[in-house]
Deep mutational scan, measured.
Amino acid sequence: DVEPGKFYKGVVTRIEKYGAFINLNEQVRGLLRPRDMISLRLENLNVGDEIIVQAIDVRPEKREIDFKYIP
């Protein structure tokens, strides 16, 4: 289970104008929005990159997770 405030290693699987989709595993995916990136820009991410993200909002009923990147 993903818990708000905890850090997780994930893989960038898709990049859109509104953010990057990060997979923690095959069943768990969330969104990293540009506003939640500190010292990292969306255009510097590539599909396949491994990054450490912090879960900031977890909505299991909608199967949605918002992430934050903190270097």
Rank of each mutant, 00 (worst) to 15 (best):
T13D: 07
P34D: 07
A20I: 06
V2Y: 09
F67H: 02
T13V: 11
M37V: 04
N46S: 15
E61R: 09
E26K: 15
F67M: 04
E50F: 15
E50C: 13
I38E: 14
V11E: 06
D57K: 14
N46K: 15
V2I: 15
Y69E: 06
E16V: 13
L32Y: 01
V47R: 05
S39T: 11
I70M: 12
F21R: 04
Y18D: 06
V12H: 00
L24F: 04
D66W: 08
R35W: 08
G10I: 03
P71L: 06
R35C: 08
R14M: 09
I38R: 11
E50I: 15
L32M: 07
L31Q: 03
P60N: 11
V47S: 03
F21W: 14
I51E: 00
G30K: 02
L32V: 03
E16R: 09
L40I: 13
R33I: 05
K9W: 14
L24C: 03
E3C: 09
R63D: 11
V12R: 00
L31V: 07
R63H: 14
K9M: 10
G10D: 00
G5E: 06
V28M: 10
P71C: 09
R35A: 12
N25F: 09
Y8S: 01
N44W: 14
M37C: 05
G10Q: 01
K62F: 10
V58S: 08
I56P: 01
K17P: 15
K62I: 10
V12D: 00
Y8Q: 01
N46Y: 14
V58L: 06
G30R: 01
F7N: 07
I70R: 07
K68S: 12
R29S: 13
Y69D: 03
Y8C: 02
I51G: 00
R59I: 04
N23K: 13
Y8D: 00
D57G: 15
R41D: 11
P60F: 09
R41N: 11
I56L: 14
I38D: 14
V28L: 14
R35L: 07
D57M: 12
I22P: 00
V28Y: 10
F67W: 10
S39W: 10
E26I: 13
G10Y: 01
E64Q: 14
I15M: 07
Q27T: 14
L40N: 05
Y8P: 00
G19P: 01
Q54V: 12
I52G: 02
G30L: 04
P60Q: 10
F21I: 12
D49H: 04
